[in-house]
Design a protein around this nucleic acid. Sequence first.
DNA 1: GTAAGCAGTTACCTAAAAGTAAGCACAATG
DNA 2: CATTGTGCTTACTTTTAGGTAACTGCTTAC
Lengths: 118, 118
Amino acid sequence: MAKTADRKKKVDCLSRMMAVRDALDVINGKWKLMILISISDGNSRFREIERSIPKINSKVLAKELKDLEEHQLIKRTVIDGYPVLIEYTATDYVMSLEKVMDSLYDWGVNHRKKIFAK
Amino acid sequence: MAKTADRKKKVDCLSRMMAVRDALDVINGKWKLMILISISDGNSRFREIERSIPKINSKVLAKELKDLEEHQLIKRTVIDGYPVLIEYTATDYVMSLEKVMDSLYDWGVNHRKKIFAK
DNA sequence: GTAAGCAGTTACCTAAAAGTAAGCACAATG
DNA sequence: CATTGTGCTTACTTTTAGGTAACTGCTTAC
C-alpha cells in the first residue's frame, strides 16, 4: 500500500475513534442512559425518577441531571406554587439518541441471550 | 390508566434499562471501543494497537484486551517462532456491534458539529 | 555493543466516580 | 403530632478506573 493511502487509513481510524469518544463522553457512566430512558418513559419528578431506577441515590441523580441538562438532553422546569415543583422533560435532542439507545438495547438483549445460552 | 397497564409500563421501562446496562457493562470505559475500532481497522499486534490509540498505555491496553477476549469480541493467537508473536483479531461477534458503533459514530460527529456551531 | 522492538508485568500512585447518611424547610396526610 | 413527601445539598468514605515508570528475556538492526 502506498504511504499516502496508509496515512489516510490512519486518519480515518483516528477520526472514527474520536467521534465515538465524543459520543461516549456525553452518555458514559452507569446512569445517564438509564435516566434518559426513565424520563422518556414519562417520569418527570425527581423522586419519581429516583424510584424508577434501582439502586440510584439522590446525590448521583442530582449530578447526572445537571450534566444532562448542560448537554441539552433534558429540560428542567420550575412550577411555582407551594411547594415549588420541578419537572424534568426530554428535549427534542434526545430523539437524536434514539438509534444509539435502540442499538444498545438490541445488543444488550442479544448479549444476555448469548451468555445464558451457555 | 389501569394499574395493570401501569405495572406493565414500569416493567418495560425497567427491562429497557437493564438491557442497555448489560450492553454498557461490556463496552464501557474510555478504551474498549477504541481498541475494537483499531483492531477492526487491521491493527493486530500489541504495539501496533498501542501506537494507533493516542494516550493509551500498555498496562491499560493489556487489561482491556483481556476483557474483550473474555467477552469473545477479539481472539488472541500465539504465533510460534523466535520471538513468539501475538496476533489480535476481531471475532465475528464484533460484527454484531456494528450498529452500536455506527450510531455512536454518527451521533458523535453530529454532536461535535452542534457544539462548534454555537 | 548499544539501541530498539517484541508482548507484556509489576508495584505504586492519583483522580474520578460512586455510595452513605444525614439534613434542609415546608406541606399534606394519617 | 409523628410520618411522609417535595428536591435537592453537604461532608465523608469507598471503590474503580486509569496513569507512570521501570523491567523482563530474547532478537535484530545500527
